[in-house]
C-alpha cells in the first residue's frame, strides 16, 4: 500500500478557539492510482494534502507512506522522503524567478547528492518529457503560464518519484493550458507514477481514476470514475 490514512484528525488552536480542519478521515491509495481529492475551499482538502506529502503532521490518527508512519520519522527523514519519493506541483507554479528552467528543474536534485553528470541527464530528460527542451535556458518570466506549470511538472518528476502531488495545478491556467497539464499528468500516470490531484473543479477531477470528496473535514464519498475523461491530442497541443 502506498498511502494509508486512518482516522486522521487535524486541529488548529488559536488562543482558545479550536478549528477542526480534518475530522477522522480514512482511506488508502495504491501504487499506480490517479486520485482526485475534491472539495470546496475550507473543506480541509489542503490540510489533508499537506499531511499526505509530509509537510504537516496530523493531531491524531495514523498516516503511513510506503509503510512508514509519519510518527516514526524525524524532520530530516521526512525531508529525505519528500526529496526522493515525492514530486510537488503547486497552483502558482512556485518557480524561482531569477534562475533558468534548467536550474528550476534541478532544484530537488541539489538536495539529493547525486553526481553532476547524472543530474544533468535527469534534468534534460524531465524537461524533454514536458516538451520544453527548446526553452531550457529561458527564465520563468519569459514563459507563458502554461509553460511555467510544465516546468513545475518537470521539477516534480525529475527525481523519478513514486507519487506526484498536484495542488490545484490548473487553477491559474486557461482551459487549453490546463488541458495540457492534465494530459501530462495522465501520461505520467500511464508510465506508472501515482498521482494525487487536489482540485475543486468537477471537470478536472473527472480525468482521475478515483475521486475522494471532502466536506467540513470529513470524507463524504470515495468512488471510481465511471466515465473517465481523457485530455486529447496532447502531443498536438504542446506543439
Amino acid at each position: 500500500m502506498m498511502i494509508e490514512a486512518y482516522n486522521l484528525k487535524k486541529e488548529y488552536r488559536n488562543d482558545s478557539v479550536v478549528t477542526v480542519a480534518l475530522d477522522g478521515v480514512t482511506f488508502n491509495i495504491e501504487a499506480g492510482e490517479f486520485v482526485a481529492i475534491m472539495g470546496p475551499s475550507g473543506s480541509g482538502k489542503s490540510t489533508l494534502m499537506h499531511i499526505m506529502c509530509f509537510l504537516d503532521r496530523p493531531t491524531s490518527g495514523i498516516y503511513k507512506f510506503e509503510g512508514r508512519s509519519i510518527d516514526d520519522l524525524t524532520d530530516d527523514e521526512l525531508a529525505r522522503i519528500r526529496n526522493k519519493r515525492m514530486g510537488f506541483i503547486f497552483q502558482s507554479y512556485n518557480l524561482l524567478p531569477r534562475t533558468t528552467v534548467f536550474e528550476n528543474v534541478r532544484l530537488p536534485l541539489i538536495y539529493s547528492g547525486l553526481k553532476k553528470e547524472i543530474e544533468d541527464k535527469m534534468v534534460r530528460e524531465a524537461v524533454k518529457q514536458v516538451g520544453l527542451s527548446h526553452r531550457i535556458n529561458f527564465y520563468p518570466n519569459q514563459l507563458s503560464g502554461g509553460e511555467q506549470q510544465r516546468v513545475a511538472i518537470a521539477r516534480a518528476l525529475v527525481n523519478n518519484p513514486s507519487v506526484i502531488f498536484a495542488d490545484e495545478p490548473t487553477g491559474n491556467l486557461d482551459s487549453k493550458s490546463g488541458n495540457i497539464v492534465i494530459a501530462l499528468l495522465q501520461e505520467l500516470n500511464d508510465k506508472g507514477h501515482t498521482i494525487v490531484l487536489v482540485t475543486h473543479e468537477k471537470y478536472t477531477s473527472e480525468h482521475a481514476k478515483r475521486i475522494i470528496r471532502i466536506l467540513d473535514g470529513k470524507l463524504v464519498s470515495d468512488e471510481k470514475v465511471i466515465n473517465r475523461l481523457y485530455a486529447k491530442n496532447n502531443k498536438e497541443l504542446i506543439k
Binding site: C53, A79, N83, Y111
Partner: peptide, 16 residues
C-alpha cells in the same frame, strides 16, 4: 519566504 518554503517542500533539510 516562498522560496524557502519551496526548497523545504522539495527536500531541503533545516541544515541546507
Amino acid at each position: 519566504t516562498k522560496e524557502i518554503g519551496l526548497r523545504k517542500a522539495v527536500g531541503a533539510r533545516k541544515k541546507d
